[in-house]
Amino acid sequence: MGRNLYILAATLGVLALVCGILSFTNIAQQPGSPGDIRLWRTMGLGLLVVALAVALGGILSSLIEQAERRDAEQRQQKRRHR
């Protein structure tokens, strides 16, 4: 589960980077493209915040899985030791 969250966070981070780059270039001012630079910056910032939240979820998920795995191993060792 944690690995999937890391992939999602990386994808959202790349999209945030693309939005940020578009806001600082003249591409946003070309005919036919959304020209509101504030919109691109806001969208990039929003995607970055979501990406960071998803990455935090991935970290916490990995930590919980690791703790559960170690707890199960300790229980098995105690059973074998008896």
Rank of each mutant, 00 (worst) to 15 (best):
I64C: 07
Q77E: 13
R70N: 09
A51N: 01
T25A: 05
A10K: 09
V54Q: 02
E68C: 08
P31T: 05
R80F: 15
R75V: 09
V50K: 04
A53F: 13
A72S: 11
A10M: 10
A10P: 13
S62F: 09
Q77M: 13
L12S: 01
L39Q: 03
G20R: 00
H81S: 10
A67I: 11
M1S: 12
L17N: 07
G44F: 06
R80L: 14
I27A: 15
H81A: 11
D36W: 15
I64F: 14
V14K: 06
R70Y: 01
T11W: 14
L17R: 04
E73W: 02
L39S: 05
L45P: 00
G44C: 08
A67C: 08
G13I: 04
Q74S: 12
A51V: 03
T11D: 11
N26E: 14
V49S: 13
M1F: 14
N26Y: 09
M1N: 08
L47P: 09
A55R: 01
G2D: 01
Y6F: 13
L63V: 06
G57V: 02
A53L: 15
R69E: 02
L52R: 00
Q30A: 15
I59K: 02
W40D: 03
L45C: 05
L48R: 01
T25W: 02
V18Y: 00
D71I: 08
E65L: 05
L12V: 05
R82I: 06
